[in-house]
């Protein structure tokens, strides 16, 4: 089927079809470009500083200072409140442990909301680091639990209440799987997230056996008058859409020696927190004298969050 054509007509056929094709191609490319139209509403483009910012562990003190000032400026622009954003370093000779007394927890959820207020969590969509599971007496089968209970008053007879938040595991599956090391365990035991480094792949959320992690599916909203201006870089600085967050043992409080917000509001004193390396701390006493257990011990996460019953 080899036909001999004079070069001109051969070229003209291909030229015609080339022009035809390229017109359609141009229209197609234009349609694709028009497809990007929604990006007009992207608003403030990400600043070059923020885009190029290095990982937390690579930041020198002067770089970190610049970052903190930048964050302060951003928060002020967004919420009209000038915050204090600091980078708290871990204390030496400290390893945090949390103990929760399941006899005393009545399921009032004051801890949940104290955490929300302290840590500048999004109200819409609502993010809550702590989930209180109402369990029927006699079982630890989570499928029988219910986190959405809404009775007139608590506690209800025949049930116990089990708050679950990040356990700051010693062998965390979440830090293992993060492809960019945006989450790691600090020397004092807290598993932290560098919100400005996280790429939002949600692998850590899939890996966590305790449903402790939360993802910002959209830009968080916090009422301006409810912002907590005392912030820390690894803790309660306001997050943005597309990054993970979770309980960090109120790092901005605990690293200056204070109790976490959830503990301070518990009306029945069910929550206990302290330095396990101090043999006189209440958590050291609890781990020595009470019959403590952890959730899903068989997964091997070695949580730093212990549950126990008093009576």
């Amino acid at each position: 089927m080899i036909a001999n054509r004079p070069p001109e007509s051969r070229d003209s056929i291909s030229r015609r079809s080339f022009l035809r094709g390229s017109t359609a191609a141009a229209a197609g490319v234009a349609a694709m470009a028009a497809g990007l139209a929604p990006l007009r509403k992207l608003g403030e483009a990400i600043s070059v500083d923020e885009f190029l910012q290095q990982h937390y562990k690579e930041l020198k003190p002067e770089d970190m200072d610049k970052v903190l000032r930048r964050i302060e400026g951003e928060v002020e622009r967004q919420y009209g409140v000038r915050p204090h954003v600091r980078d708290y370093k871990p204390m030496n000779g400290v390893e945090y442990v949390y103990a929760l007394n399941l006899t005393r927890c009545v399921g009032c959820r004051k801890c949940v909301h104290a955490c929300v207020a302290e840590n500048n969590q999004s109200r819409d969509p609502a993010i809550q680091y702590i989930q209180v599971i109402k369990m029927p007496n006699g079982t630890f089968d989570m499928e029988k639990g219910d986190a959405h209970y809404a009775p007139e008053s608590v506690p209800e007879k025949g049930f116990f209440y089990m708050p679950v938040q990040c356990h700051q595991c010693k062998n965390p599956p979440c830090t293992k799987v993060c492809p960019v090391k945006a989450t790691w365990t600090e020397p004092d035991g807290i598993t932290v997230i560098d919100y400005n480094w996280c790429i939002g792949c949600r692998y850590c959320e899939a890996a966590c056996p305790y449903f402790a992690r939360r993802f910002n599916f959209s830009e968080p909203t916090i009422p301006k008058d409810q912002i907590n201006p005392e912030m820390s870089y690894l803790g309660n600085q306001p997050r943005h859409k597309g990054v993970m967050e979770k309980c960090h043992f109120c790092i901005q409080r605990t690293r200056v020696g204070r109790y976490p917000a959830c503990l301070e509001v518990c009306p029945t004193g069910s929550r206990k927190f302290g330095n396990i390396l101090d043999p006189n701390s209440e958590v050291a006493h609890i781990l020595r004298e009470k019959r403590v257990f952890v959730l899903k011990e068989e997964v091997g996460t070695l949580p730093r969050f212990f549950y126990y019953f008093d009576v």
Binding site: G257, R258, P267, H285, I286, E289
Partner: peptide
């Protein structure tokens, strides 16, 4: 006994009593 050791009843303020 638990209360004396801090295991019963709530404690507010500072877990690190050298700071508060």
């Amino acid at each position: 006994r638990d209360w004396e050791l801090g295991m019963h009843g709530r404690t507010n303020g500072y877990w690190d009593t050298s700071k508060g």
